[in-house]
Computed example of a mutant assay.
Amino acid sequence: MKHRQGRSPLQLLIHELGKFGLVGGVCYAIDFLVSNLCHTLLGMGPLSAKTISTVIAATFSYIGNRQWSFNHRARTGLRREYTLFFILNVVGLVIALGCLGFARYVLDLRGVLAFNLFGNVLGTGLGTVFRFWAYKKWVFLHPDDPKAAPRADLPTELPARVPEHAGRI
């Protein structure tokens, strides 16, 4: 079954995962660097450092995902999208903080390695899986979803092959 973008559901999923992964990689680097800067250099507690880094990375993530990863999906309004995006990122943050808090306060692992392993690898990884699923389901809707507003700026058919210059940063 082909979608109106001329791609099968599997091709569309792979396309979205690739873009989501690139945006996520940049945002992961931001999250990792800011959390370590706050925790190790500024002496902030691990949960505070992770919260600040996640808020900064999530802001970049929203812009990248809205403008690039899911730009072919329907728009339902900035207020609705950003509110849901914010709520879902809070859930993702709770997942990361849960992993980090468990390591710190239950297992009593206090080193930088434990901070990064539980907060920046395991917690962020689990939160990312949740966010990808949730963004597709609630934030960046399929154009056929009843809540999706038609977008006049999108063609009804997307090219089967993306031009060479498309998506370059």
Rank of each mutant, 00 (worst) to 15 (best):
L126S: 09
H72L: 11
R75K: 08
L100T: 04
A96Y: 05
D108F: 12
H72F: 07
G125P: 00
G119M: 02
C99T: 15
V106T: 12
L84E: 11
F140G: 01
C99R: 11
F115N: 02
L93K: 01
T76M: 06
V106I: 08
R79F: 15
N116F: 04
R104H: 14
F85V: 00
S69W: 00
R131F: 05
N89C: 07
N89Q: 11
N71E: 15
R73I: 02
T128R: 04
V106A: 12
V121E: 06
N120F: 04
R80M: 11
A103K: 07
G123Y: 09
Q67L: 15
L109I: 02
W133V: 14
L97E: 13
L113G: 09
L84Q: 12
F86D: 11
Y105A: 14
F132Q: 06
T83I: 11
V90N: 03
T76N: 13
R79S: 13
A74Q: 02
Q67W: 13
T83P: 07
T128W: 01
L84N: 11
R131Q: 09
F132V: 04
A74I: 00
G77F: 00
W133T: 14
L126Y: 06
N120G: 10
L113T: 09
F140V: 00
L84V: 06
L97A: 06
